[in-house]
Design a protein around this nucleic acid. Structure first.
Length: 233
DNA sequence: CCAGACGTTGTT
DNA sequence: GTCTGG
DNA sequence: CCAGACGTTGTT
DNA sequence: GTCTGG
C-alpha cells in the first residue's frame, strides 16, 4: 500500500479492538485518501481515537501545503530529517480494515483490495507531527499591535504518515512495497517503546491476507461507498 | 562559511 | 508533463 | 494512491 | 530545526 485504504468497521468494534474511544463523529470510510482527516491513536492520548491529516507536514515546513509525505520508508526512518524526530517520540497507530493497490495491466490500472480474513481490523504503523505556521514578521516589535492571528492554537495542524516496508507473499504479486501492519501484540510497543525496541517491528506482515480486484470506481477519492470493497471480475 | 534541501512511489 | 487537491 | 488542473485581466 | 552540498 501507500495511498488509499478503508476503515468501515462499526464504531463499537473499532473502539473495543483498540481500547479507545472516538473523539469525533466516526463514519465508515471505504476510500480514505491523502490530505483527509483520518483516525489515529497516539501514546499521548491512548484512550482516544483522534483525527489527523494524512500527509506528514514537517515542523519546519513553510506552508501547510507541504504535506506530500504520505509514506515513510521503514528502512530509513531514523536517518531522514523529515521523520527522525517523529520516529523517536511521535509514533501512532492507523486503524484500517483494508487497503488498495493498483496493478498496471494491458487495459489500464486495475485496483485490488488487500485485507485480513473476515476484514478484521489491523493497525498500520504511523508517525505524526504537529506543525505551526511560521511567525509572521510584523515589524511592530515583540508586543506589537495584535492583528496577526498567526501562531495560535487553532493554527496547529496535526498530520501523520504511514510507514512502508517490503511486501509479504500475498502483496508481492501486486506491488513492491506495503504498509507496515503491526501484530496486535506489537501495537503498544510501537507506541511506547524506545526507537531501538521498535526497529524490529517493521517487517512485512506475517499472517494470511486476502486480495481481490475491485471496481475502478475506487480510483476517484470522491467515491466512498460500500460497493468499492466488492469483488469484481 | 552560507544556501538549499528536507519524501515516496513508480517510471525511464 | 507536472503539480495540486482529495 | 488517482483525478484534475494547468491563467490573467478586469469587473462585480 | 538540521543535514548536505558547494
Amino acid at each position: 500500500m501507500c495511498g488509499r485504504y478503508s476503515l468501515f468497521s462499526p464504531r463499537e468494534e473499532i473502539e473495543t479492538r483498540f481500547d479507545a474511544e472516538f473523539s469525533f463523529d466516526y463514519e465508515s470510510r471505504y476510500n480514505a485518501a491523502p490530505s483527509q482527516d483520518l483516525p489515529v491513536i497516539t501514546d499521548e492520548s491512548p484512550g482516544t481515537i483522534q483525527r489527523m491529516e494524512w500527509g506528514l507536514i514537517p515542523t519546519w515546513a513553510d506552508s501547510r501545503t507541504d504535506h506530500g509525505h504520505i509514506n515513510a520508508r521503514a528502512e530509513t526512518l531514523a536517518e531522514k530529517r523529515s521523520f527522525a524526530e517523529a520516529y523517536e517520540s511521535r509514533r501512532c497507530l492507523v486503524p484500517a480494515d483494508g487497503f488498495y493497490e493498483w496493478v498496471e495491466t494491458s487495459g489500464g490500472k486495475q485496483p485490488y483490495r488487500v485485507a485480513l480474513p473476515d476484514d478484521d481490523l489491523f493497525a498500520m504503523a504511523g508517525l505524526y507531527e504537529r506543525w505551526k505556521p511560521p511567525q509572521r514578521q510584523t515589524g511592530l516589535g515583540e508586543f506589537g499591535a495584535s492583528g496577526g492571528d498567526s501562531g495560535g492554537e487553532d493554527d496547529i495542524v496535526e498530520s501523520f504518515t504511514i510507514v512502508t516496508t517490503e511486501p509479504n507473499e500475498a502483496v508481492a504479486d501486486l506491488h513492491h512495497r506495503m504498509a507496515v501492519i503491526l501484530d496486535p501484540s506489537e501495537e503498544s510497543t510501537w507506541l511506547r517503546g524506545s526507537a531501538d525496541d521498535v526497529a524490529t517491528l517493521l517487517d512485512p506482515y506475517d499472517g494470511s491476507m486476502q486480495t481481490y480486484p475491485v471496481s475502478s470506481a475506487v480510483n476517484s477519492p470522491a467515491n466512498d461507498s460500500p460497493e468499492l470493497i466488492e469483488p469484481v471480475g
